[in-house]
Design a protein around this nucleic acid. Structure first.
Lengths: 335, 335
DNA sequence: TAGCCAAGTTTTAACGATGTCGGGTTTAAG
DNA sequence: CTTAAACCCGACATCGTTAAAACTTGGCTA
């Protein structure tokens, strides 16, 4: 067994009692500068590191947030969407800035999440990030609006959940203006608009609203939500081609779908962006490597992380959610 | 404050003492079936969930592993390489299977990692995943081979660190055979072979060894390690073209580099795979979306996670590392 | 000089679990 | 019928910290 230095050891060396060490190190005002200096010196000499478990037991808080990543049924979130990695990185940065640790889970049934993290006091709050393509996972969080439960989610299939989301309508409008400026006359939306994915509906709404100003009513190809996002793009393009309706631009509900769209168009011999413009939503890295590189609407990842963390901290403090919309911007690439 | 049920409450309801509750729930043989049933019933009635912090303080172990993700200096690991997301997902699955929680960090100086996680008893062991392009971060782990420190890393710039790696030489040989079978006569290796990235050197070694059997000595384009992996591919192709040496196949040290290679070749008007075959290493998702889709050597991610976790558990138990090589396989796509 | 206040400490008591020890019951052996 | 060995379970100590209460000082007021 390895020898560990406790606050008691520090106290002995500094010639004070152990609680004084605690107060000195925690910056309590009720300790003289002289004593504090002695304690700090002793702590440094001995290489003292606080035992977080003792603090947590005593204080009843963990300074830890749990992040639960939900992929499609039977699939890890890593396979479902690389977007989540960016989001996770941003959440990690925001949590670290606030002094919080991050516990992540890619596994387990949602029913157990609270037992494992919240009830067992492993985390003070919980951030849920996942695909709406896993409705069973979300079912649990629906109606879990009890005040003592501190959680916030990204996206969310329902408006009444505690979500943080992109400025989807604004993003849709940006996409519309971009396509109009590129001289497109027949834009089409592809995405699971009618599904549980509220964000997609919002994206379409902004898109349609903006185009309406130019007297264009963009058709929307609703897709089969049981397919992967990418396959959705492929299938939608096939359906679109078969329908025979004219189109010269596609706004895909998300980047993975847009990549599927690019593939399907390429296979059909339709050149992008010459004959058809394609724009996605999310700003995933793979969009850089497609041919042509994917133009997209990208949320401000840093703010996304900040808002998720800030809002869950609000919940922990018993306060309501504050800002919940993440601004987006157009990233022009080649499509 | 929210009411929480403790083992003491359960004990009262079951009509036993609190330590008996502990024994009953932990499956101690020293408790009668009858008593155990009473305790279990009481626990269920009250919705008892154990307080992990108390257990951890008492037991001195946390059942938690820390994962530290290291990106390029000033960059989050999420930006550096999407490969890490797959690895993280696999580690999470393996840890969950062993009953371990996962604490992740994308931040902080390596000097603080042990203080934060190991010394403060927030984690029993540590898994370091990161790019060799951040030498300062690795410097700390060098020489940190003290037996009481339980850590394992992916990749690693030095052979004497506690690493887990892909079957790099085997992968190099597979790449070589693949290119030979495709009828290629002038294969080239692109990658920071001479850098601190040991894995790249191994990939080249296997590649060269296998080609040697056909009396081919593949040239290697060593690249500037200060560039991103992708830029390395771009620059290497430019250098290659400028040198005027003939080539009809490229084995890139990693997928991001391969994607850079594809881009540079495309810009130079060289068709893939007609004039030049390209093969990468890592199996990142973005390789699916390039044009053409990237052929690559992919490690078995599940095993990668298992081995990282297993080896760090070995370290925790004071045992040596066991299997450390992750098998790889060829993923044929279009390049 | 008694009385009081404030500052700085020590004392004491948790937080919620686990492990050791020992005694009381029951069962089996003598 | 006694006695020893299992077998259970309760009492108590403990992990390392923080918070509240009690207690010293010294300085200042009345």
């Amino acid at each position: 067994m390895v020898f560990r230095v406790t606050a008691f050891d520090v106290a002995q060396r500094a010639g004070v009692t152990q609680p004084t060490v605690s107060r000195a190190l925690n910056g309590s005002p009720k300790v003289s500068d002289e004593t504090r200096a002695k304690v700090l010196q002793a702590a440094q000499d001995l290489g003292y590191v606080i035992n977080q478990n003792a603090t947590r037991l005593r204080r009843g808080e963990t300074m830890t947030l749990a992040v639960v990543l939900i992929g499609r049924a039977g699939e890890s979130a890593t396979e479902t969407n690389p977007f989540y990695f960016s989001l996770l990185g941003s959440v990690a940065a925001a949590a670290a800035a606030k002094g919080y640790n991050l516990l992540v889970s890619f596994q387990g049934s949602p029913e157990n999440f609270f037992g494992q993290y919240d009830d067992a006091r492993q985390a003070d709050g919980m951030i849920v990030i996942g695909t709406t393509q896993n409705p069973e996972a979300w079912a649990y969080f629906r109606g879990l609006d009890r005040p003592e439960k501190a959680w916030v989610c990204w996206g969310a299939p329902d408006d009444d959940l505690r979500w943080v989301r992109s400025e989807n309508e604004g993003g849709g409008r940006i996409a519309a203006r971009y396509l109009l400026e590129a001289g497109r006359k027949h834009p089409v939306f592809i995405g699971a608009r009618a599904s549980q994915q509220r964000q997609f509906g919002e994206r379409y709404a902004g898109f349609a609203e903006e185009l309406q100003k130019s007297d264009i009513t963009p058709p929307a190809i609703d897709v089969d939500e049981s397919l992967s996002r990418e396959e959705q793009g492929v299938e939608a393009v096939r359906a679109l081609l078969q329908s025979g309706q004219p189109f010269d631009a596609i706004f895909a509900a998300c980047d993975l779908t847009a990549l599927g769209v690019l593939r399907a168009l390429s296979e059909a011999g339709i050149s992008v962006p010459e004959r058809v413009s394609v724009i996605g939503f999310d700003g995933i890295r793979a969009g850089n490597y497609s041919s042509p590189p994917l133009t997209t609407i990208e949320p401000d990842f840093e703010q996304a992380g900040d808002l998720l963390v800030q809002n869950v901290l609000n919940r922990i403090a018993g306060e309501p959610l504050t800002q919940r919309r993440v601004p987006v911007q157009l990233v022009k690439r080649g499509s």
